[in-house]
């Protein structure tokens, strides 16, 4: 999902300034040398404007994805089938909130405030992962999100632990460490239904997999030949592995897991290619992907409206906490 941000750069930002000062050229030469040496860039180090903007966009949209990603799952907290599943789901949704916070903090180091980023989300200027605009219709959707959506996210995120921008890389290391339980709990929840469940429950799992499979493999972003900014991202060590490579890795791993689970993946063209030593898969509906990104997915309006409402309803709490802190500080000064 995170590579999506890089593929959606506004056009004007793709065209770099033609005229630069001698000093800037020298700074950029040193910056490039640092990247080539595999060195990390820290918040206060000099960096090209375009690098800063690209990262800010990617990290803030990654943060938004974590926060909006709490909504489809939060939908099932009160309806989880057992206390155990409810505790697990609560822990997972709390993690997503935490991941959003780590990432906002990393993005803030680039010089944009938290409020500015949240404002960009609410106004629709900033995007979040397309996947969270699909509805969670049944309990099996929760297991499937863990297995497929978190599985795809982990596949995407592990290479970012080696991102050249150190605050982002550090946040990603923490996130990846915490997120491995997310995928496992999802698979576990589905496995229980497939092995010990009723025929209706098994059908429910298959239905969820049918609906989430294609959106999940879209999470890796457009194909490499339609991803014009990837090369620059690779050059700068922001992106380490291409969209298509990550997607293939995910498909190869997931097909085997689906066999264990006893579900079929909804793609008649999915088959082992002995020559490539990978699974071939069918054509992805990129028009759907573009529609969902552009705001026309099943839940785009609902998701944004929920976030906006939470933000507005929380305004008095934020203001009151700040007013209280200022009052206490004044009292202390007076004493």
């Amino acid at each position: 999902m995170y590579t999506q941000a890089m593929d959606q750069q506004p056009k004007e930002e793709r065209e770099r300034k033609a005229v630069r000062s001698v000093e800037e050229v020298e700074l950029e030469r040193r910056f490039d040398a640092k990247i080539d040496a595999g060195d990390f860039i820290e918040a206060k180090d000099w960096m090209p404007d375009h690098y800063r903007k690209t990262l800010l966009r990617q990290i803030s949209q990654h943060a938004h994805s974590e926060i909006v990603g709490m909504l489809p799952e939060g939908n099932w907290i009160t309806r989880a089938p057992t206390l155990k599943r409810k505790a697990i789901l609560l822990a997972k949704v709390q993690d997503e909130g935490g991941h959003g916070l780590y990432l906002y903090a990393a993005a803030e180091t680039l010089g944009t405030s938290r409020d500015q980023m949240i404002d960009a989300l609410h106004s629709g200027k900033a995007k979040y992962s397309s996947i969270f605009n699909y509805p969670t219709l049944t309990w099996a959707d929760i297991g499937t999100i863990g297995w497929l959506v978190d599985g795809a996210a982990i596949m995407n995120q592990v290479p970012i632990c080696r991102c050249s921008y150190a605050p982002y890389a550090r946040a990603m290391i923490r996130i990846c460490r915490e997120e491995s339980f997310h995928q496992r709990q999802g698979f576990d929840a589905l496995l229980v239904m497939m092995r010990d469940g009723t025929p209706e429950q098994r059908a429910m799992v298959q239905d969820a997999v049918n609906r989430w499979w294609w959106p999940s493999i879209m999470m890796f972003g457009p194909p490499d030949d339609q991803s014009p900014n990837s090369a620059q991202g690779m050059r700068w060590g922001i992106k380490r592995v291409s969209n298509d490579t990550l997607r293939q890795r995910f498909v190869d791993a997931t097909v085997e897991q689906a066999k264990v689970l006893g579900v079929t993946l909804p793609d008649p063209d999915l088959k082992w290619n002995a020559e490539r030593e990978h699974y071939d898969f069918g054509a992805i509906d990129w028009d759907e992907f573009k529609r969902v990104i552009a705001g026309e997915g099943p839940c785009n309006r609902e998701r944004l409206a929920t976030r906006q409402k939470a933000w507005d309803d929380g305004a008095w709490v934020r203001d009151a906490a700040l007013a209280y802190a200022r009052k206490q500080a004044t009292k202390q000064e007076a004493a």
Binding site: A43, K44, A105, E108, T109, L110, G111, T112, S113, R114, D115, Q116, R318, D319, L322
Partner: peptide, 14 residues
């Protein structure tokens, strides 16, 4: 550590 506090502070009095 979070830098660029000046830029951030301007828009974030609250």
């Amino acid at each position: 550590m979070n830098s660029n506090q000046n830029a951030a502070n301007q828009s974030s009095l609250n």
